[in-house]
Design a protein around this nucleic acid. Structure first.
Lengths: 324, 324
DNA sequence: GCCGCCCCAGAAATCGATTACCATCGGTTG
DNA sequence: CAACCGATGGTAATCGATTTCTGGGGCGGC
């Protein structure tokens, strides 16, 4: 790879001039400008971003650290982040923390040490701490403890309340909630909304990881018991897969014997029969807003932390409507 | 952030000694070792990886450039890459080319300029060229033109042939193939396998992007025509969503009126009714093998290009079996 | 005609690490 | 006893860019 010195030598100027021409920072004689451009083209010169970042002490790369790349919600968020970042001339480097605080920490360290300009982060849990030297952070989906950082969240509690209320309105009597691990903010929030809607009725709560396998196990236990629910609110799409597997195995007719509402409007939600009622979260917009906040923050470090809360939408389909 | 000079000053030694202690490259007096370690701890020192990479002219980061983060196949590949990379002490930076050659090129440039140690790439198409300065590359899913690079592929052609044969064996007469855009290797390969199985029977081929919307349109046209197929081989899971949507709309009973086999064993394949027959590709293993090859290549640049071809498996479920 | 100012471009410092090279010291060998 | 050797640690070069500093030349004002 050609370096800036090679270009300077070929053009017969100093490296300072080459840099000035290529960055357009200062006026340079047009004759020299064309000599430099010519030389750069001839050598197929590309600036070494490592050297540039070292000197400039920043870079035009955003880190995106998400808790599960295999979750369609987060990949949609990732798309949103990428779209606005690219529009602003930034690239996005994606790390998958896999809900593991150690991996998360490793990626955050990398984000700081590699001098990325900022981080969009979906924190694994309440224990998430930012290593020293971490650039500006915007939390998505879940807030960071301390509340000193920008965040883009969804009013998932209201959504859970409305979804539960909807099941009750449809005549389901005994609504269960299958939510995520204790301490995970979204899991607790959805549970809280569920409880609000129950308004004193007896609750029926099970927890598992935000994965299909865990939800499968949890729901098998739930439906193996005497006092079965006749409806379930399930906290994400992967868990819905586990739940629906169990229901099929048990021979329960969804929408009749059992009502189901899931979080996240995945593409296949309309393909199962009956189609799945879901809480649709504006995943793409979450990503776009988060990237927007982050770019603002990078532009000027000052200012209060902003928290944006977006609304979720209940999309009613067959899985929750009693076919009378 | 503390720098190596701060540590050196606090420990009363030179930066060279600090570096030697922290990298264990050379023997250093135990007294100095402990002073340095103490100082590093006291200052919460973390080496600046940008500076380190500049000097060492490499890094322990792998780039992963995939063509669609929202495609479960590629996210599973990504998990595989990440798993082996992390085990070897590497981090993974993920870029989403979104099947767009320009974005792909931008990420490849970044991979080279940021001095990542290597790239795992699913090329967007036959036009993919590697910019000068690109580190070692392993292609996944689709080969790179020229054949001078390592690759991990799937024998998707045989799989397509077997899948088509399976549909014919089940008594379907008029099997269509809904595949990806012209020139995309996997699209062509699957089409070729389909044609092999047809063995001269009249073919019925439609193409669209590897996305649900395109497949939906294409299949609406396909089923709007006079001479409809009675079975379809569809080239990926996103396209299957579009196809299944059309079939439901048309009131066709899957597995009876119409047989369906899709590529990619997504989690929801068993949840639709009837369950979807699929070609299961070993996505996670593809990622692991690709990262393995890449790490080998990074270790020693010499050697022939290796191409690993993995087998895919036909998983027969209800969507392709005539319920007699 | 002289002084000061501005503009431009080169020289050199800088970012923060690694590492080639050299100096010192204690001990061993011929 | 001189020459040598290995271990150790400091000095300074280096990676490849950006940016500050500096100096020379041209031009306007007095």
């Amino acid at each position: 790879m050609a370096t800036i010195s090679d270009v300077a030598a070929l053009a017969g100027v100093s490296t300072a001039t080459v840099s000035r021409v290529l960055n357009g920072k200062s006026t340079v004689d047009t004759e020299l400008v064309s000599r430099v451009r010519e030389a750069a083209r001839a050598l197929d010169y590309r600036p070494n971003t490592v050297a540039r970042n070292l000197r400039r002490r920043d870079s035009s790369v955003l880190s995106l650290v998400i808790s599960d790349v295999e979750n369609p919600f987060f990949t949609a968020v990732a798309r949103g982040v990428e779209d606005t970042a690219r529009a602003a001339g930034y690239s996005v480097l994606l790390g998958n923390s896999d809900e593991d605080p150690d991996k998360e920490r490793a990626y955050l360290e990398l984000a700081g040490q590699a001098q990325t300009a900022g981080v969009v982060l979906s924190p694994t849990g309440p224990g998430t701490a930012l290593p020293e030297g971490t650039p500006p952070v915007v939390a998505v989906d879940r807030p960071l403890p301390g509340g000193r950082h920008d965040a883009v969240l969804v009013d998932t509690r209201s959504a859970a309340r409305l979804a539960t209320q909807h099941l009750l309105d449809q005549g389901y009597q005994r609504v269960a909630c299958l939510t995520g691990p204790p301490g995970v903010h979204t899991a607790e929030d959805r549970l809280a909304g569920y409880r609000e809607a129950l308004a004193g009725r007896p609750e029926l709560v099970r927890r598992s990881e935000f994965k299909a396998a865990g939800a499968r196990q949890a729901s098998e236990l739930l439906f193996g018991e005497r006092d079965r629910p006749d409806a379930v609110l399930v906290a994400n799409s992967a868990m819905a897969i586990g739940l629906l597997g169990t229901l099929a195995q048990q021979g329960l007719r969804i929408g009749k014997d059992i009502g189901v509402v899931s979080f996240d409007d995945v593409p296949w939600a309309s393909l199962v029969h009956p189609a799945l009622t879901v809480v649709r979260q504006p995943a793409h917009e979450i990503g776009r807003r988060a990237a927007g906040l982050l770019l603002d923050r990078i532009g000027s470090v000052r200012g209060e932390a902003h928290t944006v809360v977006l609304a979720a939408e209940l999309v009613v389909r067959g899985s929750s409507t009693r076919e009378v």
